[in-house]
Simulated scan of single mutants.
Amino acid sequence: MAKGSSRTNASTLPRRALGRQLRKLRERAGYTQSAASRIAEISPQSYGRIEDGWQTKVTDLGLNALANAYEATDEERRLLLDLAREIREATASGGGWWRAYADALVLGFDHYLALEEAANWVTSWQTTVVPALLQTREYRQALTWANNPDWSPEKVERTLDLGQRRQALLERPGFRFEALLTEAVLRYTVGSSSVMADQVEHMLSRSDAPSVEIRIIPNTETRPVGLISRSFVLFSFPPLHASKLQEPPVAFMEGFTGDLYIERDTEVSKYAREAERIRQVALSPSASRDLMLRISKE
């Protein structure tokens, strides 16, 4: 599925997984969503939201009724109930840490943060700006003021605090961040030349971390790989905690008038293939460091 703003909080992944499992069982049994909603004793709209992975209540009683109707195996029934338990546990925890920054969040961005927090591997292909997880506070401030000139200084500061809090991910064991960038990202002057010099120095220091890999496509590269697809982010996830179900990756594209989350396997695989094509023309991590070093000296 491809959506603008959508589900929120830490239960995003088990909700998506539960929705896919219910859809698979329902289609196998030959039921319509309307018929399934009557079995679960909820409205057709609520049942549709469950299959779409949106936030809505689902009880074990309703899931057992659906499992009976769908002639689910014992293993399939346990998986549904395990996923429901994961949803409840995540909801009871009060959501993600970013709730404290609700006043600084753009509408729908909490879904992005939930995916970022749940991922164990994030690939960011950027053609114009430094990825948020690698931005200095001054670079982020220049971008924020340019895009939101009517914001109060207090809201801008809260947004910058949120950005710095997100970067703690780079220190989390098992997390990997892969930044694929055009050289233009480092050549654009955001804020001032001194802001950019500090930004490139910061990226150089971050590239030493085992969790971070930065690779750059130089301006001399004649194959325009990645320019047609535009910037995007790929999220990959570890198995869910209780059910051990492997969540498929999600692609994200930021738009001027709305963001896009891509979840259909066939569509996400296109972005995964494009990321691989970009890697093939990008400089190696060490050669990318050399290029950043030259630019920082300039």
Rank of each mutant, 00 (worst) to 15 (best):
L66G: 02
E298I: 01
W54G: 03
Y261L: 00
R277I: 01
N68A: 11
L105Y: 12
A2T: 12
L105V: 08
L105A: 01
Y47G: 00
G226R: 12
T136N: 11
T266Q: 14
Q45S: 06
S43A: 07
A104E: 06
K297T: 10
V122D: 01
G53M: 06
L283Y: 12
T222Q: 13
L83I: 03
L113D: 06
F237V: 04
R215W: 10
Y101C: 09
L204G: 02
L13N: 03
V200K: 09
F237P: 08
L134D: 05
V129P: 09
L283C: 11
A10P: 15
I278D: 04
G174D: 08
G191H: 08
E213R: 14
Y101M: 08
F175S: 01
A102E: 15
R137I: 04
R140H: 15
R49F: 09
F232R: 01
L63D: 00
S288I: 15
R172D: 00
L240K: 03
S286M: 11
T59V: 10
D290P: 15
S5Y: 13
E86I: 01
G4F: 15
N68F: 13
P153N: 08
M1V: 08
Q126W: 04
Q21R: 13
I39R: 07
V195Q: 06
A29M: 00
R140F: 15
N147E: 12
A118G: 02
L283R: 03
A132N: 14
M196H: 00
R230L: 07
I50Q: 07
L107V: 10
I214E: 00
S205G: 12
R166H: 04
R38P: 04
R264F: 12
K155G: 06
D150M: 10
A146R: 03
K270L: 07
A67D: 08
S207T: 00
Y261P: 01
L293Q: 11
P131M: 07
E154Y: 09
T182R: 13
V212G: 09
I50V: 12
P224G: 02
R88P: 02
S211F: 15
D82S: 08
A197G: 11
A35P: 14
P249Q: 09
Y112E: 03
L133I: 12
Q135P: 15
E276D: 10
F256N: 04
F256T: 07
A119M: 12
R294V: 09
A282Y: 03
D52Q: 11
Y101I: 10
S5G: 07
S207R: 00
R99M: 04
H241T: 10
E41V: 05
K3V: 14
T182V: 04
E138M: 07
A251T: 05
R206A: 04
L283W: 13
L63E: 00
F109D: 04
I214W: 00
L293C: 10
L291H: 04
A197S: 14
F235P: 02
D265V: 09
F237N: 03
K297N: 11
R38H: 05
S193Q: 10
W151I: 03
Q141E: 15
L293E: 13
R77C: 09
R215P: 11
W97I: 02
E157G: 02
E138K: 13
A251N: 06
L133C: 12
L22S: 09
G48H: 06
E89P: 12
S229N: 11
G53P: 10
L61V: 07
A251W: 14
N9R: 14
Y31N: 02
T182S: 11
